[in-house]
Simulated scan of single mutants.
Amino acid sequence: MTFQRIVVALLLLIVAGISAIGYFEWRIAVQARTLKAFVEGYVFNEAVMACEQAKSSTPFKWNGGKSTSVIGLNSVKPDKYNVFASYTLVADGVYCDYDPIKRKAEIGSSFLERE
């Protein structure tokens, strides 16, 4: 009988531990989404201005564009020391990657092939 009580107590502790981990993971995910939304809202105006002013053979027209969409904030970590961030906008089929750290826009570029 003592063995059964120990097994039940251990199972209850395991279930409680897994539940606590799930709760904290959910809370952190909510905070991460909130932070991402804040950063995207902060960067949006700068990205639009930089993309419209970027020199390219293909003009980027966010204002007055027929079909515009925000892909959003992306990041690539090519190694353990570097993270490259990009905020991507699409206007009438023309992609523009805005680097919020360098404050530089590249039109028609592929973010994954960037230096």
Rank of each mutant, 00 (worst) to 15 (best):
V43I: 13
R103M: 12
T88L: 03
T88V: 09
S56A: 15
I107A: 06
A37I: 01
W62V: 03
A50F: 04
G64V: 10
K36A: 12
S56T: 10
R33L: 06
S57P: 12
Y42N: 10
M49Q: 12
T58R: 14
Y42I: 00
V8W: 00
I21L: 12
K102P: 05
I14E: 07
V83I: 11
K77I: 08
K104W: 03
N82I: 09
F84D: 14
G93S: 14
R103D: 14
R33C: 00
L13V: 12
Y95E: 06
A16D: 11
A54T: 01
A91D: 12
F44Y: 07
G22I: 01
A29I: 06
S86W: 04
F38D: 14
G22C: 03
N45P: 10
C51N: 09
Q53I: 04
V39N: 00
S109A: 12
A47Q: 05
V48K: 07
G65E: 10
Y87V: 00
G64N: 11
W26E: 11
S67K: 15
R27K: 14
A85V: 00
E40I: 01
V48G: 06
G41W: 00
L89S: 02
I21K: 07
R103Q: 15
A105I: 07
E46L: 07
F44W: 02
R27Q: 15
A29D: 14
N63R: 11
G64M: 08
I28T: 15
E52V: 01
I101P: 02
Y81D: 15
S69M: 06
N45G: 01
G17K: 08
P59W: 01
A47F: 03
N63H: 11
S75H: 10
G17A: 07
K80V: 15
L12G: 13
A9F: 03
Q53F: 02
A16F: 08
G108K: 02
F38R: 13
M49W: 08
R27C: 07
Y42C: 05
Y95T: 12
N45R: 06
E106P: 04
I14Q: 05
P78C: 08
S109E: 07
K102D: 10
A47G: 09
K61Y: 02
K36F: 06
F60C: 11
G93W: 06
A54W: 00
L13M: 12
S56E: 09
T58D: 14
L89R: 05
E40Q: 08
F24P: 10
N74L: 13
N74S: 13
A105N: 08
D99P: 08
A91I: 06
N45Q: 09
D79T: 02
V83A: 11
E52A: 01
K104R: 10
I71N: 06
D97Y: 04
E106M: 11
Q53S: 13
V76G: 04
Q31C: 07
D79P: 09
L73W: 03
A91P: 12
Y23A: 14
Y95P: 03
K102S: 10
T68S: 13
F24G: 06
